[in-house]
């Protein structure tokens, strides 16, 4: 008679078959798998990589894309000191108020402020981008099928459209975007677009990899803690399973 193993098998069957729901991106190919420092059971973030990625975000992506779920204080997790974070924050202006005259005013950002986006609202963003809305990037690697692999594929997937394909105005050909026409111009177009503070060579694949790692962190800042805790919990449970099974067998010896 099948045992609880079958129950787990059912879980696996159902899960594997149905967990990755709607895998079909219709006409776009599956993005190839990249190596990420944070993937797998023992994955962790690489802080140097995250700092480089943040630099790319700030200098390239932030022109159009907000990350409104990130606060400046979160950047301390990337390895910056409190004072460095204060300095980074103070470079931006945020709206505050109303003051005693009833007016809103601008002031330098503080670590406790969220990182301000480039546009005050969606309509302004659309107006500046031919009607297209650059999505918020705080959760982008969790909000797309394929996760970091997909975002990386988009960033590096710009090429000339195949012969005979008619592109709509203000659209760019991207191999991995569903329908192959994306409103975003290639953001990482050439090497050394950004000068890395730590001196790493800024090739396009390097920049794409770094910024996607940063965005993965932005979507899941607790991954390191989660993996660490998970290891301890699962180890504990495996030991508990052993002990409880032995105890069960011992108690049941009388009946069997």
């Amino acid at each position: 008679m099948p045992r609880p193993v079958l129950g787990l098998l059912l879980a696996g069957l159902l899960g594997c078959g149905l967990g990755g729901i709607a895998r079909a991106q219709e006409e776009a190919p599956t993005p190839p798998h990249q190596q990420w420092s944070f993937e797998g059971v023992f994955g962790t973030y690489d802080r140097a990589e995250l700092q480089r990625g943040f630099q790319i975000y700030k200098e390239v992506c932030a022109v159009c894309h907000p990350v409104k779920h990130l606060y400046y204080r979160d950047l301390e997790e990337l390895g910056y000191t409190e004072d460095q974070v204060k300095g980074i924050a103070a470079q931006a202006q945020v709206t505050d108020g109303p003051n005693d005259q009833g007016e809103m005013f601008q002031r330098p950002a503080r670590p406790s402020d969220p990182i301000p986006g480039p546009f005050p609202n969606d309509q302004a963003a659309r107006a500046a981008n031919n009607g297209a809305l650059p999505p918020d990037l705080s959760l982008i690697t969790k909000a797309r099928e394929g996760g970091p692999d997909y975002v990386y594929a988009i960033l590096t997937g710009f090429k000339d459209p195949p012969a005979g394909m008619k592109m709509n105005p203000n659209m760019y050909y991207n191999e991995y975007f569903a329908g192959h026409q994306i409103a975003m111009p290639p953001p990482l177009a050439q090497a050394d677009q950004v000068k890395y503070a730590d001196g790493t060579a800024a090739t396009v694949p390097q920049m794409a990899h770094d910024v996607v790692s940063f965005l993965s962190w932005a979507a899941e800042p607790n991954l390191d803690e989660r993996h660490r805790m998970g290891f301890k919990v699962i180890l504990f449970l495996i030991i508990a399973i052993g002990i409880f099974y032995a105890a069960k067998r011992k108690i049941w010896a009388r009946v069997h």
Partner: peptide, 24 residues
């Protein structure tokens, strides 16, 4: 103690499955 221990053992296995998904 028969089914309390057997249910406890089963609970550990179920928690292991849950923990795998929650943490990884």
């Amino acid at each position: 103690p028969y089914y309390t221990i057997k249910d406890s053992f089963g609970l550990c296995v179920a928690l292991l499955v849950l923990a795998f998904f929650v943490f990884y």
